[in-house]
Nucleic acid binder design. Structure first.
Lengths: 108, 108
DNA sequence: CCGTATCCCGCTTGATACTG
DNA sequence: CAGTATCAAGCGGGATACGG
């Protein structure tokens, strides 16, 4: 943490934030957690059939590490794991909603 | 155009729309066109020093082909080319703004 | 000034198999 | 059910040089 922040640090923050959303599947995953929805691992596999297990696990781990998604493990057999948005992740909902609306305008 | 659209085409549309925004630099480029701003090629090179000419040109071409950015060439010497958002591209501004606000919340 | 062309590397992604 | 491990491939992306 020896690096000092310049007055332009806000702009840098945006680019850093964007990098957290990069990745072939992250936004798609987030759309399925939109609006407080809770998903299990196997749910995602059904919702996003094209994704491989590897990528699903990897992207979820990254989203978790970045504080966007929270992972809740129930210590039972068979295992049960739930994913939901963190508070900060919830703050993305307006953006997700705006992207949704934008996509719809394409058809017109 | 032989493919018929299923009732689920809306959901597919979102994923397709997301793919248009994929790429290391696209959203950063769009941020610099935010709110009706007009940029020249050389402007982008100053605004995004880390980007290579190849990637800048490539991402601009894709954004143009996808109908998000418009390219205006002034037939003069030396050449002058201006980039701005299309109408549909402008419709992305609320989303960009929401992402901006989201990024700012991280610091709290 | 505004790009292309070419070469090349490495990370992301995919396929498959295996496990607590 | 919810993941790892491993290997391989392809394309995104960087460096450099050249062109209208």
């Amino acid at each position: 943490m020896s690096k000092l922040y310049s007055p332009e640090s806000a702009a840098i923050g945006v680019e850093q934030a964007l990098r957290l959303l990069e990745g072939r599947w992250k936004l798609i995953i987030l759309f399925h957690l939109f609006d407080g929805k809770v998903q299990r691992y196997s749910n995602f596999e059904k919702l996003i059939p094209e994704i491989s297990q590897k990528m699903l696990a990897q992207q979820l781990r990254q989203l978790e590490a970045d504080g966007i998604v929270s992972r809740m493990v129930y210590p039972q057999v068979p295992p049960k794991v739930e994913y939901r948005l963190t508070d900060w992740g919830q703050a993305l909902c307006p953006a997700l909603d705006a992207i949704l609306k934008w996509a719809e305008k394409r058809k017109v």
